[in-house]
């Protein structure tokens, strides 16, 4: 894996580039890949440079959490339905937080963009073409970074933070294993494969997330400097 980040965004991404005055930087990767830490460091740095920075997170809203709870009581949730519910959640973050910030000219640091959802949906066996079309409403980020770690590293980091894996986080709906940890690992392997297919297609930048925090941040800043003009 290269320790360098190549910032030229290719034109291959199915997403349309945006024309807003702001800049959009998206961070993707498995749970526990350290992207939130890196984004926070980027945020402080960019703010110190005088930029308006907005950090957006994609955590399931109350609305969706409740709906999923109801759904589970009624039996298995179809993967396509699950994916459209997650897409609903993302769409709301997108229209409510991301777009207005880009219109204002802010730098948006998105802690997960569409790629994580795509990777999970693909891991659940949802039709590729369809789900790609669903997310086509989202604009192409100016910089999309993939924080790469292995499934084992992901598990290790998560378990050291939260003692319990959540149902959907562990991919328990896929019946890969009755054991949440085994299920999680199998699910993460599938997600990793899905990420791999997207890195080139969506021109994501691969970052070795096992590198020391400082070194990662250094690489990130280099990449960000190329797209964010100095004030």
């Amino acid at each position: 894996m290269s320790a360098e980040i190549n910032t030229q965004t290719s034109n291959t991404s199915p997403l349309e580039p945006h024309t807003y005055p702001g800049k959009l930087i998206a961070a993707e990767g498995l749970d526990g890949s350290g992207k939130s830490t890196q984004l926070q460091l980027l945020q402080f740095w960019l703010q110190a440079e005088g930029h308006e920075v907005v950090v957006t997170e994609w955590t399931p809203s109350k609305l969706i959490r409740r709906t999923l709870k109801t759904a589970r009581k009624q039996g298995q949730v179809d993967p396509m339905l699950l994916s459209i519910l997650y897409a609903t959640d993302f769409a709301e973050v997108y229209e409510r937080d991301i777009i207005p910030a880009l219109q204002r000219g802010a730098i948006v640091l998105a802690d997960r963009y569409i790629y994580t959802a795509l990777a999970r949906d693909l891991a659940r066996g949802v039709e590729h073409a369809w789900i790609e079309d669903v997310y086509r409403f989202a604009v192409r980020p100016d910089l999309g970074i993939y924080f790469q770690i292995s499934a084992d590293q992901s598990l290790e980091r998560i378990l050291s933070n939260h003692p319990r894996l959540k149902y959907y986080q562990a991919g328990m709906d896929l019946s890969l294993s009755l054991d949440p940890i085994a299920s999680f690992c199998a699910f993460q392997q599938r997600i990793l494969q899905a990420y791999e297919t997207m890195i080139d297609a969506y021109a994501l930048l691969r970052l070795d997330a096992t590198l020391p925090i400082k070194q990662q941040q250094h690489l990130l800043r280099e990449a960000v400097e190329k797209i964010v003009s100095a004030i």
Binding site: I64, T70, A71, I84
Partner: peptide, 30 residues
């Protein structure tokens, strides 16, 4: 039965933006 609840809740809370509404209705149809 699944989505009608969510739609009722969505209506009582802060209004959703058009994309999210569209996707929620799509979930209902699905």
């Amino acid at each position: 039965p699944l989505i009608s609840d969510a739609l009722v809740r969505a209506r009582s809370g802060p209004p959703l933006h058009p994309l999210a509404y569209s996707l929620l209705y799509c979930a209902d149809h699905m």
